[in-house]
């Protein structure tokens, strides 16, 4: 049985450590700074432009999230178990009256809280600037975009934990995280672009393959939240919204949730089997 108190004790310790991690501080400042800069870019101060410029700013923020959040989520996840395994701290922790799932969940929750706090700081600051400029978009759409970004961060963290559970050394885990980041952010999409160009892949297939990438799930969900349609993504976007209609957002959220849960379950299974060894 999972003792939530124990989970929180470990989570809180992890949260304290992560918040004081200099890389997280640098990332937070960089992300918040860029988000602030994007939202502060001067827009023409005339009628009809508020919504369009707001949508463009949100799209830029989406782009920023696509680059930064997976990287930091994967890296923090990947180093969470591997580095402590290397120093022996994990071994010592597991020798205490705690179960492995409590350790894994505690560490996940702690790092997740820190990452989401960092993300909220960046996007919240950008939101204030947008609101101050009289943003044309509605608050619900922005909140949904932030929620999708949080889900993406959690999904990447789960995958990072899986890498961490599998890796023997910190360096291996970091390498795995960077490779996975490249795979999701660049290689996967570039491969799909290439395949689409060479094979003239049907729209349905392109959409299906794209949706296997959690970054595309986030992007489509976030843009849909801001624009209430996906026509900006061309025929595939239109096909997606026409096909899934009102189920589109639930589908995106549920798919991202699967990307959170399945890697974490795999990480737990492997961690329970392997422990601190």
């Amino acid at each position: 049985m999972i003792d939530l108190k124990t989970v929180w004790i470990i989570g809180r310790k992890e949260l304290q450590e992560t918040l004081s991690n200099k890389w997280l501080i640098v990332y937070t400042l960089l992300f918040a700074g860029l988000a602030l800069a994007l939202s502060s870019l001067s827009q023409p101060d005339v009628e009809f432009t508020a919504l369009a410029s707001y949508n463009r700013t949100v799209a830029s923020l989406v782009n920023l999230v696509l680059l930064f959040v997976p990287l930091i989520g994967l890296l923090f996840g990947a180093t969470s178990l591997a580095s402590e395994r290397e120093t022996g701290a994990l071994d010592y922790l597991l020798a205490q009256p705690v179960s492995r799932i409590e350790v894994l969940l505690g560490k996940y929750i702690g790092v997740a809280c820190a990452l989401l706090a960092s993300l909220n700081l960046g996007l919240g600051t950008a939101g204030i600037i947008l609101a101050w400029q009289g943003a044309g978009g509605d608050a619900n759409g922005y909140v949904m975009t932030v929620i999708m970004a949080c889900l993406l961060g959690l999904a990447m963290l789960s995958i990072g934990f899986l890498i961490s559970a599998l890796a023997a050394k910190t360096a291996t885990a970091i390498g795995g995280a960077i490779f996975t980041w490249l795979l999701f952010v660049f290689v996967g999409d570039l491969g799909l672009i290439g395949a689409s160009l060479v094979t003239e892949m049907p729209i349905q297939t392109t959409l299906l393959v794209a949706l296997l990438n959690p970054l595309q799930l986030f992007k489509m969900g976030a843009i849909f939240s801001a624009h209430t349609s996906l026509e900006v993504l061309g025929p595939v976007g239109l096909y997606a919204t026409d096909t899934f209609d009102t189920n589109f957002m639930p589908l995106m959220v549920a798919s991202l949730a699967l990307w959170i849960v399945i890697p974490l379950l795999l990480a737990q299974w492997y961690f329970a089997k392997r422990g601190a060894a």
Partner: peptide, 14 residues
């Protein structure tokens, strides 16, 4: 190939 507009805003496009 308008299908590729799916990758608008993607880091891969950049």
């Amino acid at each position: 190939n308008p299908t590729l507009r799916l990758f608008t805003y993607s880091p891969a496009a950049q």
